[in-house]
Structures are given as C-alpha cells and as structure tokens.
C-alpha cells in the first residue's frame, strides 16, 4: 500500500446521496480475479450510455454528457466530493479498487457506509467525514471555480483551501498510522500471534466445539 502524507488534487462531484457499491462498480466487472483495471468501469452505468461488459474497448463507448464527472473541468480529479451514506450496499472491495484505479485518493462526504469506509483505508484511500454544512459549502465553491483543488494533510488532519482557510477532520489514530506508513494490517496483527495462540488455548476448554474441523 502507498503511504499517504499530503495530497493536493482537483475535486470532482458525485452529487447524489446513497451511492451504493453496485453503482460504483457494477457486478459484471466483479468476475475479475485481479485487483487492478477497474478504473475505466468506475460508475459505469452513469458514465456511459450503453451497458458495459468486461473486455469492451471503453474509449469507444458513448459517454454520458450529463454526468458532471465526464466534463473536461473534472478530468484528472483525485478528490471526490459526494453526499451521505456513500458506499452503501455490497461489501465488494472492488469499489475502492475502482476508485483508486480511476485516480481518487480522497473522498469527502457527510457519512459513509461502514464496510466501505473500512475498505478504503486498506487500500490507501482516505475517506473524510465533514458536517453537512461544510460539504454544502465545498459543493458551492467547487461549482463556482473550474479547476477547484484542495490539499489534504493527513499528519495535521486538515483540509486546506487555496485561500489558506483550513478545516480539521477526524481520523482513527491506528488507521492514520497505517496510512502514513503504508502499513499492511496482517503484518501488524501477526506481531500479536502469541496472544492469538493463548486465546485459542483458553477457548479450547470453554467452547471446544468451535475447534472441531468442518
């Protein structure tokens, strides 16, 4: 996983609430056994006018001109600004893989669905929660200014506007440490392997049926 320190990038909108993971990456693309290559099919049903299938030449497909994300001013965006309950539905990690593969490193919303929120951190994406009113202001500022960018400083836990105004954000200290250092959860957990073994030893007496083989 890539370490995350300070990131500056163009902000793009997904201006709707309850964006589910089916919308982020439709199921026909989940048949892949890889982690990469999902970017061209991010928000597939919204970005293109036809029905996408794996293996298609996406550059030749008709694009939806009404979707703001498709407009020139939002090309190369790396920060996604969106509405509440983003990432609800299926636990598919293909959703953060698709966002990352497209280029998004930061997500800003008033709320995220639990499993999705968790999956983001495991892939080097920083999901940031802000009050509804702040999100509303950011939408207004973004629409008003083509090429609107933000800087996110994870170490200091602040979002910095171009005029120097800042907004603080919360992040779990453990998740922050993992992101800053690009740490792999498994390696960290295995430092506690003696504790896991001790736990198993104790549970073998209390609930022995758990340890019967399937």
């Amino acid at each position: 996983m890539e370490p995350f320190h300070v990131h500056t990038g163009i902000v793009a909108p997904m201006d709707r609430a309850n964006v589910d993971t089916d919308l982020i990456i439709p199921k026909q693309f989940l048949k892949s056994i890889k982690r990469t290559g999902f970017g061209p099919n991010l928000f597939d049903a919204l970005r293109y006018l036809d029905e996408g299938q794996p293996g298609m030449d996406n550059s030749a497909r008709p694009r939806n001109p009404d979707l703001m994300l498709n407009q020139d001013r939002y090309q190369n965006a790396t920060i996604l600004l969106t509405r509440g309950n983003f990432g609800c539905g299926s636990s598919r990690e293909h959703a953060p893989w698709a966002l990352l593969d497209y280029g998004f490193k930061v997500l800003l919303a008033p709320s995220f669905a639990d499993i999705f929120y968790n999956n983001c951190f495991k892939n080097g994406i920083l999901p940031i929660l802000q009050e509804n009113s702040v999100i509303e202001q950011l939408f207004t500022a973004m629409y008003a200014e083509p090429g609107f960018t933000l800087t996110v400083d994870l170490e200091k836990q602040v979002i910095i506007m171009r005029d120097g105004q800042t907004r603080e954000f919360d992040v779990d200290p453990f998740r922050k440490e993992c992101l800053l250092n690009g740490l792999d959860d498994i390696g960290i957990t295995l430092r506690d392997q003696d504790k896991i073994l001790a736990y198993e030893e104790q549970r073998r007496h209390i609930t022995p049926w758990i340890f019967s083989e399937v």
């Binding site: 636990s91 990690e93 953060p96 499993i115 999956n119 495991k122 959860d185 498994i186 957990t189 392997q193």
Partner: peptide, 20 residues
Amino acid sequence: QGIGTSEVEHVLATQCLLQK
C-alpha cells in the same frame, strides 16, 4: 458480519478481524 477482500486475507492469515 460482512468483510472486504483485504479482511478475507487478514482472517485467513490471522484468524482475527481488526475493528472497533
């Protein structure tokens, strides 16, 4: 509970889930 693929790998490797 449902988990993502990184957690599937984590559970396979450690028999544990990391959460609050």
